[in-house]
């Protein structure tokens, strides 16, 4: 499980380090999956009952990480959308999706 998280991070990082905007966005999205799984892992993978009271008398899994992840997922959705639109506009305005060509003014 943890190894999977590591793999997600490795692939995501590799994608972010490439020059294409597309790949960078895909990379962030993979890393965020990794983060979700990481938080879940940290909460312990005791496969207990779902955190619903009154369902059955099993021990629950840790509900706090789940709440955190739920928030993370939704925020991730918003930021991904923003990032997408940003890159889309950048591509339209600058005519490239190569980050190397997207440098600002050269005399900073």
């Amino acid at each position: 499980m943890s190894l999977l998280v590591g793999l997600f991070f490795a692939i995501g990082t590799y994608l972010i380090l490439t020059k294409s905007l597309l790949r960078i966005i895909l990379g962030t999205s993979i890393i965020s999956h990794g983060v979700h799984l990481l938080i879940l892992t940290m909460g312990g993978l005791k496969t207990g009952g779902p955190p619903l009271l009154g369902l059955q008398d099993l021990p629950f899994t840790d509900a706090l990480p789940q709440a955190l992840i739920l928030t993370a997922i939704v925020i991730n959705f918003a930021t991904t959308a923003l990032f997408l639109v940003l890159s889309y506009r950048a591509y339209k305005v600058l005519g490239t999706d190569d980050t190397d060509q997207m440098r600002g003014n050269h005399d900073e």
Binding site: V74, F77, A78, A81, L84, V85, Y88
Partner: peptide, 13 residues
């Protein structure tokens, strides 16, 4: 808020 956000994003694009 969630509906509004997601729909306005999608519609804008």
């Amino acid at each position: 808020a969630v509906i509004g956000t997601s729909m306005s994003i999608i519609l804008s694009i």
